[in-house]
């Protein structure tokens, strides 16, 4: 198990009820991590509607994660 820092924004922040948390997980990719968290917390958005950032940069869902990474799942944006 490794440790990941998760930050939540917008709809995901409301659905999780937290701004951020540290989780222990065996997920090796952001895709696996989201699947795990979505099941646990009932997130409604599918990965096809989200983007992901690792350590404050956009990343691929399949990119390997390292212990201590900060991961943000990005709901559909709506600026302007």
């Amino acid at each position: 198990m490794v440790t990941y820092n998760i930050q939540y924004f917008a709809l995901l922040r409301e659905q999780r009820g937290l701004d951020a948390e540290t989780v222990e997980s065996s997920a090796a990719t952001a895709e696996e991590l989201y699947a795990e968290l979505a099941t646990r917390h009932g997130f409604t958005l599918p990965t096809t509607a989200l983007k992901v950032a690792i350590n404050d940069d956009f990343s691929k869902w399949q990119a390997p994660l390292s212990s201590g990474d900060t991961i943000v799942f990005i709901p559909p944006v709506a600026g302007g």
């Binding site: 917008a10 709809l11 997130f43 096809t48 709901p75």
Partner: peptide, 9 residues
């Protein structure tokens, strides 16, 4: 409502 966030799993 959060705009653009309606898509469901």
């Amino acid at each position: 409502d959060w705009v653009n966030c309606h898509q469901e799993t």
